[in-house]
Design a binder for these strands. Structure first.
Length: 497
RNA sequence: GGCGGCGUACCCAAGUGGUUAAGGGAGAGGUCUGCAAAACCUCCAUGCAUCGGUUCGAAUCCGAUCGCCGCCUCCA
């Protein structure tokens, strides 16, 4: 089996993945900013993060995963005097910033759960002598860690204090490649068009805030060695990744849009503080786009959220499958019909699982012919997460199973689903709720009656009974279907069949 | 103005130098079935925005043109 390979934005190439410490991966993901619901574009990013995490686990790595939650410090503009987005929402809704953040964090977690995105456990609040190695951590719980990093940057001479804040001295920093290593864009090039506003306190317009001072209107303020204020918008990632995962990360993930500014600045800050490389692999996901090919974004106003799909009666996991149907580095054009096509296929997988179980697949080892599929599946995953190919292999295997009349491939399929995360095992094992079980029991008599009618070739009566049964079964999400053996069965209703 | 990306069938989408251009949806035909449904089978791009070039050979490399999009402001 070829080793896991991933596209590294640092070198713009697909590279073999080799962790710093054998068997262990430190993985930091840029998480949500919680002042609005996460739209489907955001959720695509987290499906990608989850898929990458699963792929690393699939390859036997012990993954230590940290994701941040930005609940302070994102400005409505980068002019160093903009309004904090969370505070803006708080004012608009008459809530405290913490309440706003809590609300959207809960919603984020709920959406992740619906998509089978496994988040790291909540980090304990406050400073701990031995912080956990996987954590979902909030910026406002880690102000101390941020101040510590800023202190190191200052001590190393890369920051300077002014009345409006503490800034990072971009011109002075000459780390490997300097600023622009990731984006491959020199500072001169970056600002050829000059859209950046100058703050009179900055030595250079490229300098960015580490700690903002003298903004009395801001609700969220903390004391620091430089005065009362709040952190700049890049420092949390440097501080929290260091705190939980160490000074050099194996993998740092985020959206493509983070390359030129956020990640550049993170690298500069972190490396000027520690003197060590910040992250060995930077991975970035491409956007979900609308039908016109335009980016879906929070600032653009209208954007679909997971609840919109749920309202349309679509299984959220169909959206996950849609994401898996395209490479994470390709733009994906979103449409309801595209999700529906995937939902159809998801139903097909569920149906296969039930068929396989009925034929006793849970009691036997899988057929030997699945080995070739296991190998090629793993190979595609290790090839920079080629999930579309992997999905094609899964479907091919199932078609093969039906064709051979040998459904003993359930274990293999469920093993694949550990990577795909479509929840096949959960739905298969989902025990019927009492109410539903009771309802189905009631239908069994009618079902037997119909079978009798069929045996007597009284098809008129059989069809009438089927209509009657289906009317009731439909309410329970089931439908009647005849099997080749002549038996009739009640089975979960397929979507849009 | 600078940097970057994309353009593959009706739709979504793999493939980035080499036999017949993955897979899915939609569509057409068929097998099976009392009928339905499910499942399976067959068909569905001599062509990969356009035009040139390199090569024995290109969707894949190079150049030009057209079109779309992203970033350089908060953004996955």
């Amino acid at each position: 089996m070829k080793p896991f390979q991933i596209y590294n934005s640092l070198h713009r190439a697909v590279e073999e993945f080799v962790p710093l410490k054998p068997g262990i991966v430190t993985f930091y993901s840029c998480g949500p900013t919680v002042y609005l619901p996460q739209h489907l574009g955001n959720m695509r990013a987290y499906v990608f993060v989850d898929t990458l995490r699963r792929a690393l686990c699939f390859n036997g790595y012990d993954v230590r995963h940290v994701m941040n939650i930005t609940d302070v410090g994102h400005m409505t503009s980068d002019a160093d005097a903009g309004e904090d987005k969370i505070e803006k929402t708080a004012r608009a809704q008459g809530k405290s910033p913490r309440e706003v953040a809590d609300f959207y964090i809960a919603q984020f977690k709920r959406d992740c759960a619906a998509l089978n995105i496994e988040l790291p456990p909540d980090a304990p609040a406050g400073d701990h002598p031995a912080p956990p190695q996987s954590a979902l951590c909030r910026a406002t719980d880690n102000i101390g860690a941020m101040i510590a990093v800023i202190g190191r940057i200052m001590a190393n001479g890369y920051g300077y204090k002014t009345p409006s804040g503490v800034y990072f001295d971009v011109e002075k920093w000459r780390g490997p490649g300097g600023i622009g290593r990731l984006a491959r864009q020199s500072l001169a090039e970056q600002h050829a068009g000059q859209r950046l506003e100058h703050s009179p306190d900055k030595k250079s317009p490229h300098d960015f805030a580490l700690w903002v001072l003298n903004q009395p209107a801001h609700l969220m303020q903390w004391d620091s060695p430089w005065g009362r204020g709040y952190p700049g918008w890049h420092i949390e990632c440097s501080a929290m990744s260091m705190k939980y995962l160490g000074e050099t990360l194996d993998i740092h993930s985020g959206g493509l849009d983070h390359i030129p500014v956020h990640h550049e600045n993170e690298i500069a800050q972190s490396e000027s503080a520690t003197g060590h490389p910040f992250a060995r692999y930077f991975v970035h996901n491409a956007f979900l786009v609308g039908m016109e090919g335009a980016k879906i974004s929070k600032s653009a106003g209208r954007f679909p959220v997971l609840d919109d799909l749920v309202a349309a009666g679509i299984n959220p996991l169909a959206f996950r499958m849609l994401c898996l149907g395209a490479k994470y580095r390709s733009e994906l054009a979103f449409s309801i019909s595209a999700v529906e096509a995937m939902e159809l296929k998801l139903d097909y997988l569920d149906e296969f699982c039930r068929n396989a179980q009925r034929s006793g697949a849970t009691d036997f080892e899988d057929a030997a012919w699945t080995n070739a599929y296991i190998e090629s599946f793993h190979e595609e995953i290790n090839q920079d997460l080629n999930t579309p190919r992997a999905l094609a292999i899964v479907l091919d295997m199932i078609g093969q199973a039906y064709r051979r009349g040998d459904l003993l491939v359930l274990k293999t399929l469920l093993r694949f689903d550990e990577l795909l995360g479509l929840g096949l095992a959960e739905r298969l094992n989902e025990s019927l709720s009492e109410e539903r079980a009771f309802g189905l029991l009631e239908l069994e008599n009618l079902q037997k009656e119909r079978e009798l009618a069929r045996a007597c070739r009284d098809f008129k009566r059989a069809d009438a009974l089927r209509v009657q049964i289906n009317e009731k079964a439909d309410q329970l999400g089931y439908e009647l279907r005849d099997t080749p053996g002549g038996q009739s069965i009640l089975t979960p209703k397929r979507h849009r069949s």
